Amino acid sequence: MTARKTPVDSFDAFWAEVSGGATETIRSIEVKVPTDVPLALEMRLKDLQDSESEDDIRELVSILFGGDVLDQWRDAGMGLLEFKTVLAWGMAHATGTKVTFREAYDMVVAEEAGEGKAPSGQNRATRRTAAKKTAASARSASTGGRSNPTSRASTASKRTTSRG
C-alpha cells in the first residue's frame, strides 16, 4: 500500500498542492503556468469566438494568465507571433499537455503555414481559426460561395441514340 500524503484542510489547499503553483516569466512579467482550463474561459470562448475586440481578448488572456498581462506584454514590446506562441503554450499547459516554448512556437508557425492538423495541445480557438481559413479557401473565387463538386458524370453531355 502506498503512503498517503499529509491531508489538507480544504479543497483550495488541496488544489494548490496538486496544481503546483508554478510561474513563468514572459517578457519580464511573472505569470502563473495554467494547469487547467478555467470554466470561465471555456464559457467565454463560446461567446467571443468571432470577436476581434481588444477588450474581449484582454478578458480571455486575463482569465488564462491572470491580471492585466496583455497590457503589460504589449507595453513590453511583445509581437503578434510571440503572443500567439504564449497563447499556444498556455492553452497546451491548461489542457494538460506540457510543451516548451519552442514546441508552442513550432505549432504556431506550422499552423500559419497551413501544415496539416492542429497538434493535440493546441487550443480550440486556434483550431477554429484554422478551420475558418480552410473553409474560406474552399469558396468560389467569383461569387464567394462554395464551389460545387464536379465530376465527369455531372458535366458530360448525355448521349442520344440515333433512330436508324
Rank of each mutant, 00 (worst) to 15 (best):
T2W: 01
A3Q: 10
R4E: 14
K5M: 04
T6H: 04
D9Y: 06
D9L: 13
D12C: 03
F14S: 02
W15T: 12
W15H: 03
S19Q: 13
T23H: 11
T25N: 11
R27G: 01
R27D: 05
P34A: 14
T35W: 01
P38A: 05
D47W: 01
Q49Y: 09
D50Q: 04
S53R: 14
S53N: 15
E54W: 10
D55Q: 12
D56L: 00
I57P: 00
E59C: 03
G66H: 02
V69L: 09
Q72E: 11
Q72K: 15
G77L: 07
M78S: 06
G79Y: 04
E82T: 15
T85I: 12
T85K: 05
A88L: 04
A88R: 13
G90T: 13
H93E: 14
T95I: 06
K98Q: 13
F101E: 11
E103A: 15
E103N: 04
A104T: 06
Y105I: 00
M107Q: 10
A110H: 08
E111R: 15
A113M: 09
G114R: 06
E115Q: 11
G116L: 01
G116C: 07
P119Y: 01
G121R: 04
G121P: 02
T126L: 07
A131Q: 12
A131L: 12
K132W: 05
A136W: 07
A141N: 05
S142L: 09
S151G: 10
R152G: 01
R152Y: 12
R152C: 12
S162F: 09
G164S: 14
